[in-house]
Amino acid sequence: MSMIDTSAQPTAKATEVTDPSGTSRRRRRRRRARVTEQAPQHLRAHLTAYLMITPMVVLLGIFVVWPLVYAFYLSFFEMSFYKDAEFVGFDFYKYVLTDPEFYDSLLVGLKFALMVVPTILVLALLLASFLATLSKRMAAFMKTTVYVPAVVSSVVAAIIFVFIYQDEGFANWFIGLFGQGPLAWLNTATTALPAVAVPAIWLGFGVSTLIMLAGILDIPESYFESAKLDGANFWQRTRYITIPSLRNVILFLLVSGLTLTIQEFQLPLVMTNGGPVNATNTPNLYIFNSFRDATPYATSYSLTAALLLFIVIGTISLIIFRVVSSEKSSDA
């Protein structure tokens, strides 16, 4: 196609020079029409779309793709801001991959995500199902209430929860009612990670509930009505109508939730600084703390660890997409 286009070009110019009369304009118009027809159908149809995304692609290219490529390049060097970088090949990959603390942090991140994400999904599903049954005014009020934690800064939430977990805090007062405690919630290896997971759930379930609610409201009412006529109870309606119809919504929440929570950083930083004995040392916190050292080694090490984390999280997302394949929902 393009060959025909280019070959047509000089002829057109020649015609224009030799024949300055009105005929050249007509020919040009005809030729342009022919060129447009000759461009592939899909390109013509999407040209506006491509134009619209161009600024974003350019910005992503500059701020994401290029830094990523450059970061991979730099990971083969021990970087110093004062001396020439020294080429070390795969040394830093070897260092990170043989460091037990890197794996420990990945495990902590996974455990944390497994505590937070399923809990959020179940809570959000239940709450969204409940909200869908409310009157408009009541639902609006409840939606706002549910969403409020999402606008609280996670640093503020972390500090509030640190107070809750103090020796004389709310959590110990509460278990004291049952004759238990007091517990050192944030300084005991077994309770520290669940204690950090609670504010993460509190912060995250508002948004998930609203997204699920939007999904539920999209399910045709007739499904539920006919199920009710057939005598299906709430659990059966949830099991056979709501969940299958929300498949893509749940998949989205699962993938985005997992990738976000594995990377949780602020809550453990403020609440425990990764302790006790690395029990809440999430991957990002681990990378952050290795970056804080002043040596050139630390800079290259944390860069490489960050790239490996990128690969790990990408792989996890890929596995989830494979296992729970995204399909068009049943009513589409």
């Binding site: 300084n187 005991t188 290896a189 302790g275 006790p276 004995v277 690395n278």
Partner: peptide, 11 residues
């Protein structure tokens, strides 16, 4: 220091 903390906290 991590060793000291591990011993302190029974890990």
């Amino acid at each position: 220091a991590t060793a000291i903390e591990s011993v302190m906290k029974g890990k």
